[in-house]
Design a protein around this nucleic acid. Sequence first.
DNA 1: AGGCGGATCCCC
DNA 2: GGGATCCGCCTT
Length: 205
Amino acid sequence: MNSKLDRKFYNRDTIEVAKDLLGKLLVYQVDNKKLIGKIVETEAYMGPIDKAAHSYGGKRTPRVEVMYGKPGVAYIYLIYGMYNCFNVVTREEGRPEAVLVRALEPVEGLDEMALNRFKKPYNELNKKQIKNLTNGPGKLCMAFNIDRSLNKEDLCENKIFIKKQEFEEKFDIIHSKRIGIDYAEEAKDYLWRFYIKGNEYVSVK
DNA sequence: AGGCGGATCCCC
DNA sequence: GGGATCCGCCTT
């Protein structure tokens, strides 16, 4: 049974996609290593009307161009000169909206994630390092070794994709203000951040 | 050609 | 609370 999310999943209302991505598994395979993390926190970026979005006002530059493309494609950009952020493009072509994946719960490939983050295997991590493995947008990209070389990668293919869990759990979804967008005037107060209530790997409680 | 600020993280 | 660090974008 193929449980990979298809193009239709992403070609929907961005807030619905952001909420529905919670509890899904991000899978990234490089060489013979497989990394899997459960998505526990997301943010919706609503395009031209959203002052926090890169595509606000219909801005169309080389960097943002991916957001105007087809849904189900990765939009990865460099932030603060050092960190990468992983997004999935939503909505039909020409409509530049996306979901930022802000935190994962590690599921498979923990040693590889620990090496990528802290240069040592998982069983040598201290409590703080375990907690900080993937609980933020930059951190999860470091743990998965995701950078801009994966920008525009099609998540409906096999290199990197998102799938349903075999047994989907029940959880409560918290709605909150988005993080790190204080410049966005009224948009900073919109409740477009979503996370799994009580999950240990949520970036900011 | 230059200046500036950022969808972050980490340490003090 | 502040520094790291650099690309993209806007202004000149």
